[in-house]
Write a protein that binds this DNA or RNA. Structure first.
Lengths: 325, 325
DNA sequence: TCAAAAGTGTTATCCTTACACCCATGT
DNA sequence: ACATGGGTGTAAGGATAACACTTTTGA
């Protein structure tokens, strides 16, 4: 292949997650125009400045937000043409690399953030159908499923199968219809279906449809494909928690088991079984007692735990395989 | 971040896997100089020609090998400086995107390949310590482990922890020492350790050490970081088999359960328990009888099966959680 | 004393693992 | 007949799921 390609830029996009008021929150910055209010922190990778892409991502995050992320993981690289609608020959083509970053929020960090235009936002404001903590989201039956079924049954808009499945089967599996269970890891599949069916404003911005005909819109829209990257990040994090102790990147140094459980529940977007959760966490050797305890708001004081680092040396995949309810 | 970056190229690298003579084989092409004989098929992504990166990868593979890959999956994007040693200002910086592709070999394809300089090579020739089908590889105790321990115990060469683990703990977990079990998914971790300890020729080529002092070398070397991409591909494939039926991308239309088992064993690099394997595959609804049977070389004729596509509609994660032995 | 949240114990069920055994064909 | 690989049944063990219950605090 010859090297006479159009000029290419590597864009880095970070889905930076922290717990804010018992909810998983994502760091957002304002979009470039006044139509779109939310974007992921992003920047251009400069190989002269950054030794690796991971280092570039860390610096970009620090520069934009004054935050130092703990855990960082690459998600996916998107190279679609037409990702940006400006198509002049002078415009560089942007290949964007999505990242997931986890961080703890301290008071100081909150203050540092106050000086910038960045801010935290509950990630379920972007993907409201993913939060089942207060029961099945009403949006599903009121709006989403009927619209998806209508779309899936329209042969004009659905010509090709994806991974061997037609649109109807994909909807059924991703949204837990007819015997299928709701699978909390299928976040990206669900977003892609909702996007393909033209139910989110990104489909309008990308010129795929004229209007969603939905008021209010289905979750807050984001710049370009940033909401897709967020969906990828959530899916990856939900999957990762089951075999890596990354949850502790989001917890303070010491915490009660209820704190831990609520954090897990907020990420999975569903309740977990209390008694079995506690047993599993302790039995797996993921935590150890600090000795201290916390007087809670009404009720028996809870023992404080900390992450037991030694577990990393003992088992290759220490995670939380937690059950429903 | 300003956009005055060095010129960047997106390199696509494909680890293309097929079964050749009951072994997982990878498609290799000759390296650019005569020192390195093996490279992965690679090319430059041109956004003007290719709608998406996945499409670019498919075209690149077809152009170089006349093969049409079935399953394609993005692995990881590497942006390290110094990945190529030439560092002149005119040299474009290459960010490389690694891909895994699976394909079936038909006789025609084999013939088409004959006209090119590409060829198949058993992937265990690159990572010989990953094949446990004939028992524990001798290389481990003869060469690898003692060299790794020596490296891990040298504080001069090991200053920083990785994922909270020191070098010693990483070796212990990745290579199943002292109570840890050998985990067939830790292919990349093992390759990274072997590379870091200077046991493979890539470490020489990258200028990290003067010589490995190993004769014969530890597996065939590859161009740049291609062997690392191969290790990533194997790890991903071994993990993926457990929850997606991608194994059938490597099988012919119809096959016996023993064929299937041997394919699985060759990928995992270890034996699996025959009786339980058969039960799981059938119980999981992954295969169905074709009705035909095959007279094997001595012994009872085996029933022929085919992949049961309907399973994709029934369960979100149909894979092979197969036990040892 | 009661509400609220923390924390413990016990059993049923399923899935994996292991082992033993029978079946159909070629030589 | 017997060697060879194909194919089946069944019981033990471990992990998860579901349920009921006790403990310690604040109001």
């Amino acid at each position: 292949m010859p090297g006479h390609a159009k000029r290419i830029e590597i864009g880095l996009n970070a889905a930076i997650v922290a717990m804010v008021d018992r909810n998983p929150a994502i760091l957002r910055i304002p979009g470039p125009d006044n139509k779109i209010t939310d974007a992921l922190p992003y920047g251009v990778f400069d190989p002269l400045k950054h030794r690796t892409m991971d280092a570039g991502l860390r610096e970009l995050v620090e520069a934009q937000t004054k935050l130092r992320p703990g855990y960082v993981e690459q998600l996916y690289t998107f190279g679609d043409r037409g990702r940006h609608r400006v198509q002049g020959d002078e415009t560089p083509h942007v290949v964007s690399v999505g990242y997931l970053a986890l961080t703890r929020i301290h008071k100081e960090k909150k203050l540092q953030l106050a000086g910038t235009s960045a801010g935290w936002k509950n990630w379920y404001q972007f993907l409201p159908w993913e939060d089942w903590r207060s029961g099945r989201p009403l949006l599903l039956d009121e709006v989403i499923i009927s619209a998806l079924l209508e779309w899936a049954n329209d042969p004009e808009r659905n010509k090709h199968a994806v991974r061997g499945l037609d649109a109807m089967a994909r909807v059924r599996i991703a949204f837990g219809l007819e015997g299928s269970e709701w699978d909390d890891e299928l976040v990206l599949d669900r977003y892609e279906l909702v996007y393909s069916a033209g139910l989110v404003d990104e489909a309008v911005n990308d010129g795929r449809i004229k209007s969603t005909n939905l008021d209010p819109p289905l979750g807050s829209a984001m710049l370009h494909d940033h909401r897709r990257i967020l969906a990828t990040a959530i899916a990856r994090l939900r999957a990762k928690l089951k075999y890596r102790p990354v949850i502790f990147e989001l917890m303070p140094e010491s915490f009660t088991l209820t704190d831990l459980q609520q954090t897990v529940e907020s990420i999975f977007g569903r309740g977990v079984h209390k008694q079995n959760f506690r047993r599993q966490v302790e039995h797996a050797g993921l935590v150890e007692l600090t000795g201290a305890s916390q007087r809670s708001t009404g009720g028996r004081p809870a023992a404080l735990f900390r992450f037991r680092h030694a577990v990393l040396q003992e088992r290759p995949a220490p995670g939380l395989r937690v059950g429903r309810s």
